[in-house]
Simulated assay, not measured.
Amino acid sequence: MNENTRGGTGAAAVDDPAGRPMVEVTDLHHSYGTGAAAVHALRGVSFTVPRGQLVALKGRSGSGKTTLLNLVGGLDTADRGRIVVDGTELAGLGENGLLELRRDRIGFIFQSFGLIPILTAAENVGVPMRLRRTDPKVREERVELLLALVGLAGQAAQRPGELSGGQQQRVAIARALANKPALLIADEPTGQLDAQTGLAVMELLRAVVRSEGVTALVATHDAQLLDLADRVLELGDGHLVGHV
């Protein structure tokens, strides 16, 4: 598989001392249902994601993008195949191990934002650190830094209902970065935003990958946003049908 970085789109991958990619997926299969009624969402998908890159997943609705993200993020279990995230094979983890992986090493960004309505922007960003029992002073400093990073230093006390869609997604990105994850997983993060706001959010994601030294795997159908990725993987009918 030729997975050369797209020309002119970003920095080289940041490898760990062992030279391992951030994500390794090998012969991944996943189905919903059984027998003749089974839907084969993924059929032998294999790829790697180098460290320090933003990799986009594209494909029509039903192509397997969300299923793939859920499997890589440890939210679901594959029928067959191998997934390694940041040097850890997911199949070897129990439920507690997967919980720790999601809490400490993976940040999730969703199309629906997923913010808690009664909490302020700052409180929403702080939630993952509260779950991790981070020292309050360290937590407050990290929240302040992250809100500044996403351009919302002045909106810390506002609740989600007082923010625009683009601002809410920025809060969600800051929250995903709270525990300094190695990997960001984003499922159609601009799906509820207009084209201009969506482009600004995707540019922010790319900037975050550079400044925070994280890796991002992002599902999107927007061709304009795909141009911002270091590489693009295309899914079709459960297969990896293209990569640039």
Rank of each mutant, 00 (worst) to 15 (best):
A148F: 00
A91F: 02
P136V: 12
P128R: 01
G154N: 13
A56S: 12
R130V: 12
I109V: 15
N70L: 12
V72G: 06
A121K: 08
V127P: 01
R139P: 01
V143L: 01
A122V: 05
T120P: 05
T134G: 03
D76P: 11
D135Q: 08
A156D: 04
V138L: 13
D79K: 07
D79Y: 10
A148I: 02
R103G: 13
F110K: 05
P160T: 12
N124G: 05
I109C: 00
V72N: 08
A156T: 02
G64Y: 08
G97Q: 13
E141R: 14
I109Q: 00
V84Y: 09
L68T: 03
L90M: 08
L145A: 15
I173W: 05
E89M: 03
R82A: 10
L57V: 08
A121N: 09
R80G: 03
A157W: 02
Q111R: 04
G62H: 09
R133I: 02
N96D: 15
R132V: 07
I109L: 00
G92T: 14
L119T: 04
L90G: 07
A148R: 15
E123Y: 04
T88K: 12
L101I: 06
A172T: 01
T77A: 14
G151H: 02
A78P: 14
A56L: 06
F110C: 01
T67C: 11
F113R: 00
A121M: 07
G94P: 13
A153P: 00
G166E: 09
I106L: 02
E162W: 05
G126Q: 09
T134E: 14
G97I: 11
D79N: 14
E162P: 06
R60D: 13
V143D: 01
R170Y: 09
V171F: 01
F108D: 04
D86R: 03
E141S: 10
M129E: 02
L93C: 09
L145W: 11
R139G: 00
N70G: 15
R105P: 00
F110M: 06
A91W: 00
N96V: 11
P128M: 01
L145Y: 12
D86K: 03
G73I: 11
E100N: 14
